[in-house]
Nucleic acid binder design. Structure first.
Ligand code: ZN
Ligand code: ZN
Ligand code: ZN
Ligand code: ZN
Lengths: 129, 129
DNA sequence: CTTGACTCTATAGTTACTATAGGATTTATA
DNA sequence: TATAAATCCTATAGTAACTATAGAGTCAAG
């Protein structure tokens, strides 16, 4: 299939597909006579793997590492496990940060019950301190 | 004070200060004879306002809007309130996403109890499906 | 044989910084 | 006073993960 169909089947934009190729997350596909990219179902599987990683907020760099590991079936998977643990730690850290943000934003929102002048706005006051 | 002291007092890197100036978040400071930037305590207050906004993940664009509003004390603060509400909605959305991420990552982590070969790794399997 | 849909490469834009390179200026030391 | 060190200046490029053009080539249908 050509890149248009590949894009629709994968739900990835054409530009993103070409970007992933440049970044080494997709193998260089075969080309037609007119230089069009030609994909098969194996390429689709690989792209879906990448999308799955991205949906977990795994960086493209780490995704690339996972793809490389995937091609060494007999090696130990300890670095895979470490990578996921690290990703989990990242998510936990960000959640903690967001909880703090949320608390302060809520407090600020309640500091300005309704419409005031800017001069009297509790939000501006709290941002100013 | 010159930019070095300003940077230390504010906890903002020198490059970031210059960047904020370029982006219109800090007024163009007076210059010394040798063209060095000179700051006063008013500039420091403004930078602290910006930092407070950023610590709440408010974008530089929105921060700029807040600064502009701050200079119109007699206007209604309804857009300030709206901005904070929107920020809160954003935080809530991201928290929801992160909870889903966390759940899937945890499930994946538990799918590979300990060291396996990559071939047998539950994490790789789950990323592949 | 021309129109239109599709594809190609190369390049620039996005956000919020960070990091140089290559000079100029000021301050401290010998 | 000469020079070295610290500080400052502008301009430019890099970061992550895309997105959006511009300008040209390819291909199928009418
Ligand atoms: Zn999944
Ligand atoms: Zn208000
Ligand atoms: Zn605060
Ligand atoms: Zn494993």
């Amino acid at each position: 299939m050509k890149i248009g169909e590949f894009s629709k089947k994968s739900g990835c934009s054409i530009q993103t597909i070409r970007y992933y190729e440049r970044e080494g997350l997709l193998l260089n596909p075969n080309r037609s006579e007119g230089n069009f990219r030609l994909y098969d179902s194996k390429a689709l599987k690989q792209l879906e793997f990448v999308k799955h990683c991205r949906s977990l907020d795994i960086s493209l760099n780490d995704t690339k590492r996972l793809l490389e590991l995937k091609n060494k079936p007999e090696e130990s998977c300890s670095s895979v496990n470490a990578l996921i643990d690290q990703q989990l730690a990242l998510v936990n850290k960000r959640m903690k940060e967001l909880r703090a943000l949320k608390a302060e934003l809520q407090q600020m929102a309640s500091a300005c019950g309704s419409n005031n002048t800017i001069e009297a706005c509790g939000i501006i006051k709290s941002l100013d301190s």
